[in-house]
């Protein structure tokens, strides 16, 4: 690792001030960033730890029934705290990595990183969540720009994520057994005004909505309704774990499993 300073602010105001410094970078759970630093793929001057900022921790509800999750809330805390009110999201958080990763990794870090195989991007896009930063509110539909890229500006900090709660939902993940990331994962959510289907792990452009399946499920919310649909293999990720054709096939299978699990 290159040398850097570690700042531990206790308020958002102090964190934003610390991030003004040249080459400063936020550190949330470090479960992605620490391995990146070890590989010398990043060379920040200062890491600004978000863990001590209580304003960025925890889960609360608003009067419209939406769930607000602080960006520095760990996967383990989300799994525990939304289990009753948003079981589909809790189950997704509980499938990320392993227990030690879930005790440190955070929702804000996962969304900012936008790994094409990460789980939370599917939940955010599949729920129609809103990413709240220090500067603005960004609908999930506009947030993800492609592999490891988002619309976040330099020095922009995710503050919280706001989730509308669907009637039913489920995440079906085909885990890549070595990394435990999604080889392909599908989040399905049924709202009063329609169904959302978000696919992670499959596309070279990162997480995406499968609109054809959304339309079919909007008419008939059953695994059979999507049985005849498929996505083209073109643009899907091909690597030693699976070909583009295999991933395209998994998109259909995991969508049906998610719908069946959501019931």
């Amino acid at each position: 690792m290159y040398a850097f300073d570690l700042a531990r602010p206790t308020s958002v105001a102090d964190a934003l001030k610390a991030l003004q410094e040249e080459d400063a970078q936020p550190l949330a759970g470090g479960q992605t960033l620490v391995p990146t630093l070890k590989a010398r793929l990043a060379a920040p001057s200062t890491l600004v730890s978000l863990r001590g900022i209580s304003e960025m921790q925890g889960v609360c509800h608003d009067d419209q029934g939406r769930i607000h999750i602080g960006a520095a809330t760990t996967h383990a805390a989300v799994e525990r705290e939304v289990a009753k009110d948003y079981p589909g999201l809790a189950a997704l958080a509980g499938q990320i990595g392993d227990p030690a990763v879930r005790n440190r990794g955070t929702i804000g870090g996962s969304l900012a990183n936008n790994d094409p195989s990460a789980c939370y991007p599917a939940a955010a896009l599949g729920s129609g969540a809103t990413i709240v930063t220090n500067a603005r509110e960004i609908p999930a539909d506009d947030f993800f720009e492609g592999m490891f890229t988002t619309v976040l500006e330099e020095d922009e900090l995710i503050f919280s994520v706001r989730f509308p709660v669907p009637k039913v939902s489920a995440y079906a993940k085909f885990a890549q057994p070595a990394s435990r990331f999604a080889l392909t994962g599908v989040f399905v959510a049924q709202f009063d005004d329609g169904v959302r289907v978000a696919v992670t792990g499959a596309s070279e452009d990162g997480v995406f909505r499968w609109s054809e399946a959304e339309d079919a499920l909007g008419r008939d919310f059953s695994a059979d309704a999507v049985a005849g649909l498929s996505v083209p293999a073109e643009g899907m990720i091909g690597d030693l774990h699976g070909t583009p054709e295999y991933r395209a096939h998994l998109v259909g299978v995991m969508t049906r499993r998610a719908v069946a699990a959501a019931g």
Partner: peptide, 15 residues
């Protein structure tokens, strides 16, 4: 009290 990978956090974070 929580299981954590000690190779993935900094000593200063555990002060």
């Amino acid at each position: 009290g929580e299981a954590v990978k000690a190779c993935s956090i900094f000593a200063l974070e555990a002060e």
